[in-house]
Simulated scan of single mutants.
Amino acid sequence: MSGGARLSILAAVALVAATLSGCAAPAPVPADDTQPEATAVSDLNGEWQLTKASDADGALAVNGIPVTLVIADDSASGQAPCNSYTGEVDIEGDSVEFGTIAQTLMACTDDARTELETRYLAALEQVSGSTLAGDTLTLTGDSVTLQFTLLPKKSITR
């Protein structure tokens, strides 16, 4: 093979290699642990049990009082210590915002439950962000942290 032909073949191989390298997948970008993973709305759908909470006044006395949050796409509802509640929720990535919360007006004779309900519902309206780690949902806002555990789906018996 002549030197010119060999040079032409090498040039063609180099051209093909350069073209194919442009088609290769980009190198993976290392994960940045400081940025929370974006959360899809469907990831938050379900029934959540409040396990721990705090606001600007300190820890809320959950003490085993059942408080739930049910998220179904753009709506939220649940059982506060005395009343059920409902409202809208807007979830975009890790940003979560609740609209005005409406609640039933059942009498609550226990002062601890009344205080927990008042502070919990006020805290929900201050939420602006979320983190989801397995079955634990943490909602945060200015001086507010609400931590929930996902409850198992209830089976329907006939």
Score class of each variant (00 low, 15 high):
residue 143 S to F: 15
residue 11 A to D: 11
residue 125 E to V: 04
residue 139 L to F: 04
residue 109 T to V: 05
residue 128 S to R: 03
residue 124 L to H: 00
residue 65 I to S: 12
residue 86 T to I: 04
residue 1 M to T: 12
residue 79 Q to I: 03
residue 21 S to V: 08
residue 67 V to F: 03
residue 109 T to H: 11
residue 77 S to G: 09
residue 30 P to H: 10
residue 87 G to L: 00
residue 78 G to T: 01
residue 2 S to P: 10
residue 124 L to I: 02
residue 129 G to P: 08
residue 137 L to G: 01
residue 150 L to Y: 10
residue 60 L to H: 08
residue 64 G to C: 06
residue 71 I to M: 08
residue 41 V to K: 14
residue 81 P to C: 07
residue 100 T to F: 13
residue 28 P to W: 05
residue 63 N to E: 12
residue 61 A to C: 04
residue 105 L to W: 03
residue 151 L to Q: 13
residue 154 K to D: 15
residue 77 S to Q: 05
residue 125 E to R: 01
residue 123 A to L: 08
residue 124 L to S: 01
residue 138 T to W: 06
residue 115 E to W: 01
residue 26 P to L: 13
residue 116 L to Y: 06
residue 153 K to R: 15
residue 89 V to A: 03
residue 67 V to N: 02
residue 130 S to F: 03
residue 153 K to Q: 15
residue 156 I to A: 14
residue 38 A to Q: 06
residue 61 A to R: 01
residue 42 S to N: 12
residue 13 V to M: 14
residue 53 A to P: 05
residue 44 L to R: 05
residue 79 Q to W: 00
residue 149 T to G: 10
residue 116 L to D: 15
residue 144 V to H: 08
residue 142 D to Y: 06
residue 148 F to G: 06
residue 102 A to N: 08
residue 78 G to C: 03
residue 39 T to R: 14
residue 150 L to P: 08
residue 89 V to S: 04
residue 84 S to M: 09
residue 91 I to D: 00
residue 136 T to G: 09
residue 102 A to G: 07
residue 140 T to W: 10
residue 150 L to T: 14
residue 112 A to V: 11
residue 142 D to H: 02
residue 111 D to R: 08
residue 140 T to L: 11
residue 24 A to K: 06
residue 105 L to H: 12
residue 1 M to V: 13
residue 3 G to T: 13
residue 41 V to S: 07
